[in-house]
Write a protein that binds this DNA or RNA. Structure first.
Length: 886
RNA sequence: GCGCGCCUAGCUCAGUUGGUUAGAGCAUCUCGUUUACACCGAGAGGGUCAGGGGUUCGAAUCCCUUGGCGCGCACCA
């Protein structure tokens, strides 16, 4: 076999696409083809929104998923990533509408109509979908493309309808009149979790409705006071309790005079503000709750869906924007001497995270999921199911507990559940799953149907119509782990691959998504959606800012891949990250990772090109020298450590161990030693193939490319993960460390004494009982420190004209050609003595402490004693050196 | 208001249940003889682990506290 020529530098761009194609064509992304594997390991890919192209955050997530799945595949599991995309209802429609407005279509819904607008959105979605899928391939993610899903495809829509039907039948989904969050710009509801709170300067106005009204109230929204129907006070408040139950008629300029009832409510804080709350049932969720407890007070909506004042607000206000109405109402209060106080303040207002406008609280009939109602056949509410899954386990089954990494998100999740209110699932946008409920125009029957029914099932009338609204996008993504596996049918996939094993997500969608998946799965499947959740932080730029369009600091992962290669990008995202914490990303990191990838390439290049035959070495070769023993020993440790860290989802830690072993131990030491000792092909290939395997999940392309060059005849992707051998030769490991240290010390002496690297020098060592070790390893020391003469003595004196050091009981003397600078050398040795003395003193104090000796474990004490004696020995020899300098 | 995270070398970050003279990468300085690699090699400098207090034989690590940065939730009459 002819020698294989490898290029000097690794060309990621030139090989990656072909490698991915090879993997894909092999069929092994599909676990059904992993015939030897038994136990499944499944990750549902969080489906990216079809709102555009992928960003670095997606590259990060893909790296996390793929490192885990490739590891599991090599560990012999039926490993699968189920890929997909999310139609992302509001987000996508908002994006397309924005684009259309930029094209001059000022009101897309009105101007285009439902069908045409949906067509435009579909085109946009399909386009970004195909871009997204090619990007995922570029990132090297080993997805099972045969199971590709889309939240809005037929199969997933079926699942959505089925869950709706079940919940509807169980009375968990209901249509209710409530105060909801309304985006005027988006003309749709938003759920509580879709709000982004921002601080806003505001004025708190304290006023009375009329001169004869006995209680003053305060508000930041005076215009809503045109719809007040009550004032709430604390029943224990002596100032006001006499008024409870009384009604006052006041004329504030609304369509009709308002009847204000004074009601009691324990929630009212006596000491806050005036101690009384003006109740506006129509425009405050809190006030609406009071209204529900005291329906007799009535409810008057004064703001409409268009964000303008309604007819109820009166002729003076009708049609005005809220801000204009506010000004006008405050002016009226002022004019009538009803305004008591104006104070500047800051409060937070909810804005729609998609449409970006401040939401209005409006009363409306909407669809909700009741999270508190006991489910008939389960005896627990959805809230309780959501709690159970992360505490005692689903149905109290300890094997069905969802674990969260890092642990602290556990408490955050539970806290969120405690504050959870009924989930508003209906949206007035068009892009999404239409609510599968029909209305009969004649008999008013309301009925569920997953097909287009021809008539009312009750009165057989054909005058029927479907609900206009669509479902919140999280309704469909909540079912993702099982809808992708074929549910509601009981498919083999569902039986084999669900619950899934691992889920990664950013903390920002913990509530949106994780909670909803748990809700949907425990309810519909009576199971958990996944076993382990890994929460990651957000990527930030070099200055710690979020990546965002408006800041213009975004980086396109594909550009980075073009420049540095996918492996470099992946490694840069995985190194130096901690679960749950944000991480900074910048090009220098990728550059460093690219350098490593190239280093690995060149390690391989050296090994392959210095051998006649590339090959795979099946079993651990025999170690012939100390260095051999050492590197094999180190390899076994790094196998164990890497495995252990990945098992803890500490990908960063695993990569650190591997990086250190590959670059320092293997390349800088062992490869150099191999040039001295020679005849190491077997071990070199053996170690190489093992680090390729260990690195594969992190940097799949370069490792596969090299592995194929070795002539394995099999894809690295499906090779077995290395297993550490148990024999640990600690003695040879320690001996090698001494040799390395001696070499380092000689190099240091050369450098300190300004000896040019090319110059050959002579060294004398007084080795004591290390004489055998040093004699055996003398060639390595000689070559790696460039010695012409290396004299090893059992005992002796410091040679004249030499500088020295002490390592592991061995005295090392570098002979200098000319006269040495005695003063400088004295200084150097003295400094070292001083450092050692300080060290010894610390140890002596410790070991002289009776309490330490009484309390510390024996092994710690033994260790400290050992440290002390070797330090004393060292200092003695250093002092000898010093005295012989004079 | 309640809660969470972070503060370790110039920068970005590791640091596992408390136990080597606290580590890495980048940057900096000095120097380039090698059977792969200058996307490289050899050597070096650089830290009161945010401040204070405590527990302990022993604290970067546990507790309290102060300060700074960031975040979540609630309130927002």
């Amino acid at each position: 076999m002819p020698k294989i020529e490898l290029s000097k530098a690794y060309d990621a761009k030139g090989v990656e696409d072909a490698i991915y194609q090879k993997w894909e064509e092999s069929g092994f992304f599909n676990p059904d083809n992993l015939v030897e594997a038994k136990e499944p390991f499944v990750i549902s890919m969080p489906p990216p929104n079809v709102t555009g192209i992928l960003h670095l955050g997606h590259a990060f997530e893909n790296s996390l998923m793929d490192v885990e799945i490739r590891y599991q595949r090599m560990k012999g599991r039926k490993a699968m990533i189920v890929p997909g995309t999310d139609h992302a209802a509001v987000a996508t429609q908002a994006r397309v509408e924005d684009n259309l407005r930029k094209e001059g279509i000022s009101n897309p819904r009105q101007d285009l109509g439902r069908e045409e607008l949906l067509k435009r959105i579909r085109e946009y979605a399909e386009n970004s979908k195909s871009v997204i899928l090619s990007q995922i391939r570029k990132m090297g993610t080993s997805c099972d493309w045969s199971r590709l899903a889309y939240t809005f495809d037929e199969k997933r829509s079926e699942a959505v309808n089925e869950i709706f039907k079940m919940m509807y039948a169980d009375g968990l989904i209901y249509k209710g009149y409530r105060v909801i969050n309304w985006s005027v710009k988006g003309q749709s509801t938003c759920s509580d979790d879709e709000l982004e709170y921002i601080d806003q300067k505001t004025v708190i106005y304290t006023f009375k409705y009329s001169n004869n009204f006995p209680i003053a109230i305060a508000t930041t929204r005076p215009e809503t006071k045109l719809g007040d129907t009550a004032v709430a006070v604390n029943p224990k408040d002596d100032r006001y309790k006499q008024y409870i139950g009384q009604k006052f008629v006041v004329d504030v300029g609304a369509k009709a005079p308002l009847t204000i009832t004074v009601i009691a409510d324990d929630e009212v804080d006596i000491n806050y503000g005036t101690g009384a709350v003006g109740v506006t049932p129509a425009h405050s969720p809190v006030d609406f709750e009071m209204y529900q407890k005291n329906k007799e007070i009535g409810i008057i909506p004064v703001i409409g869906k268009d964000g303008k004042m309604t007819e109820e607000a009166g002729v003076n206000y009708q049609g005005l924007d809220v801000l204009a109405a506010r000004e006008k109402f405050v002016a009226w209060l002022r004019k009538n001497n009803l305004l008591i106080k104006e104070e500047e303040s800051v409060h937070s207002v909810g804005t729609s995270d998609r449409f970006k406008d401040v939401v209005e609280a409006l009363p409306m009939e909407q669809w909700f999921i009741d999270v508190n109602k006991k489910i008939s056949n389960k005896g627990r509410s959805l809230k309780e199911l959501m709690r159970e899954a992360v505490t005692m386990g689903h149905n109290g089954d300890a094997s069905k507990v969802i674990s969260i990494t890092p642990d602290r998100f556990h408490a955050i999740y539970l806290h969120w559940i405690d504050n959870l209110r009924d989930w508003c699932i209906s949206r007035q946008i068009w892009w999404g799953h239409r609510i599968p409920v029909w209305y009969c125009d004649d008999c008013k029957e309301v009925f569920y149907s997953d097909v287009n029914p021809v008539m009312c099932p009750k009165c057989r009338s054909k005058n029927i119509h479907q609900d206009e609204d669509t479902l919140d996008t999280w309704f469909s993504s909540g079912a993702w782990t099982f809808s992708t596996l074929g549910w509601p049918e009981e498919t083999p996939d569902l039986l084999t691959y669900h619950p899934t094993n691992w889920m990664q997500m950013g903390y920002e969608i913990l509530f949106f998504w994780m909670a909803r998946m748990i809700l949907m799965t425990t309810y519909a499947l009576d199971d958990i959606p996944f076993k382990d959740v890994y929460i990651h932080g957000m990527l930030r730029d070099k200055d710690g800012r979020k990546f965002s369009k408006s800041l213009g600091n975004g980086l396109d992962p594909i550009d980075i891949i073009e420049k540095y290669g996918t492996d470099a990008l992946r490694l840069s995202l995985l190194r130096g990250t901690t679960p749950g914490n944000d991480m900074r990303f910048y090009e220098e990191k990728v550059e460093g990772a690219r350098n490593f990838v190239n280093k690995l390439w060149n390690i391989s290049r050296f090994i392959i090109q210095s051998s006649e035959n590339s090959r795979i070495v099946a079993t651990q070769p025999e170690a012939k020298t100390l260095a051999d023993k050492w590197i094999l020993n180190k390899l076994n440790s790094v196998i164990a450590l890497t495995t252990q860290e990945i098992d803890k989802y500490n990908f960063s830690g695993a990569s650190e161990y591997l990086y250190d072993f590959s670059w320092n131990d293997f390349a800088d030491w062992y490869l150099e030693i191999s040039k001295v000792e020679g005849n190491k092909e077997e071990i070199l290939f053996y170690v190489l193939q093992n680090i390729l395997k260990l690195w594969h999940p992190f940097i799949p392309f370069v490792t596969e490319e090299i592995y194929q060059t070795l002539g394995a005849g099999k894809l690295l992707m499906i090779e077995k993960w290395p297993v550490a051998s148990t024999s640990q030769d600690e003695a040879s490991r320690a001996e090698m460390e001494i040799i390395k240290e001696i070499i380092a010390v000689i190099r240091n002496l050369r450098s300190e004494n300004k000896i040019e690297p090319a110059k050959m020098v002579s060294v004398v060592v007084i080795a004591g009982d290390r004489i055998k070790l040093l004699t055996e390893q003398s060639e390595i020391i000689k070559k790696l420190t460039r010695l012409e003469k290396f004299t090893i003595l059992a005992d002796g004196q410091k040679p004249a004209n030499s500088v020295g050091a002490v390592v592991g009981g061995v005295q090392i003397y570098l002979e200098l050609a000319g006269l040495i600078d005695v003063e400088a050398e004295k200084k150097r040795v003295e400094k070292e003595i001083a450092e050692s003395e300080k060290y010894i003193k610390g140890l002596e104090v410790k070991l002289g402490n009776k309490e330490f000796l009484d309390n510390a474990p024996e092994e710690i004490i033994a260790k400290e004693n050992e440290k002390l004696s070797s330090a004393i020995e060292k200092i003695k020899k250093l002092k000898d050196q010093l005295s012989s300098l004079v």
